[in-house]
Design a binder for these strands. Sequence first.
DNA 1: GCCGACCTGAAGCCAACCTGAAGCCACCTG
DNA 2: CAGGTGGCTTCAGGTTGGCTTCAGGTCGGC
Lengths: 220, 220
Amino acid sequence: MRLLIVEDEKRLARSLAGGLRAEGYAVDVVHDGLEGLHRAGEGTYDLVILDIMLPGMNGYRVCGALRAAGNDVPVLMLTAKDGEYDEAEGLDTGADDYLTKPFSYVVLMARVKALLRRRGRSALPVLRVGELSIDQGAHRVERDGAEVTLTAKEFAVLEQLALRAGEVVSKAEILEHVWDFAYEGDNNIVEVYVSALRRKLGAAAIQTVRGAGYRLASDA
Amino acid sequence: MRLLIVEDEKRLARSLAGGLRAEGYAVDVVHDGLEGLHRAGEGTYDLVILDIMLPGMNGYRVCGALRAAGNDVPVLMLTAKDGEYDEAEGLDTGADDYLTKPFSYVVLMARVKALLRRRGRSALPVLRVGELSIDQGAHRVERDGAEVTLTAKEFAVLEQLALRAGEVVSKAEILEHVWDFAYEGDNNIVEVYVSALRRKLGAAAIQTVRGAGYRLASDA
DNA sequence: GCCGACCTGAAGCCAACCTGAAGCCACCTG
DNA sequence: CAGGTGGCTTCAGGTTGGCTTCAGGTCGGC
């Protein structure tokens, strides 16, 4: 589960990111509205936490632009209660929820979870690749109808491969999407997870393309 | 994969078209807004690169008109940063992304690919040369429908030849593109790979032009 | 016929990759 | 609070297969 925080107050951004990571989410942070729009537009995030006062492009416009482009990623807006902006306006631009600073950590967490849950109920597509069926909303994987239990990271890696089934996905790309983009570790970690997935899903499920990356068998 | 460039600065248009063609896209160029609207409206393009300052009809209106007609082809807008237009306005009219001149080639390429990928399917076109089909995204090659497995280097060499099918490509050019730019070894290595490719693809697939280089048979 | 350009099979080397094991940490449970 | 559990990450040894070099042969032009 991958979140994007668009917030220019660096201290706040850092503390939010820290807390959310502790809950097990992968979190990326950007400090500029335009940058935020591009990242959010990639379609790789499950939720965007969006400040309103931002350099580059303000939060209302970022959100409006996302919706105009047909992107329906859940957006949780943040703002200082200084009267200049109000809640109704935020919701009008297509935000899913709205939080006024200062807010407590617990409240934020509750809202984030509520949004993600709501999203889970709404139909996220179930990916079908070969004999696998990957339910993105429920985080469930079945192989030939039999459920396979995966850990969070295993699921995230498989999801990335499935989203681009048949294509080669490089280790760097998997790292970028599944781990925080600030992750500094060895990218041997990807190999470890691919190995685990093969053990659970069958060795033929994921093909190695030496020097290029991995490919989820789109036939098989 | 077919792109339309609507741009009245002929030099820029030509250079963009050249670069995109080199990546394997089919590219058409028009220099007038109205003409662009008609072509884009045909529904045969996978992406439109749209300048804002245009004779005939400006980019905002072209994009707005497309959307009003229910056409949701991805639109990447270009503009000079002269303050008269701003990014948010472009996105409001339904553009999917926006680039401020001057921009680097790499950035443009990244945005184009991001947009195409978001629109589903692979961003990279499948090259077809004679009886060969070369899927750049999947790193996969078929000859008359039968899959041929190539190594990373073999694939890269073939890709270079295919991107300029019918043309003679010198050994030096292949070396430069496929190997590290600082490669110091013998350029006999290219011969070795061509040899391997011929073994796998048939001797007639790659022609030698003595003293000049190699050519991928565009008929065959 | 000579010479340079090109072809291609063989073989060593090394990077990429795989995977089992173990440490660490957060969380749960009694 | 102690002990257990499970997931994440690191590490290291082993294996594989691709990359490159080399050398001997073939081909084509002059």
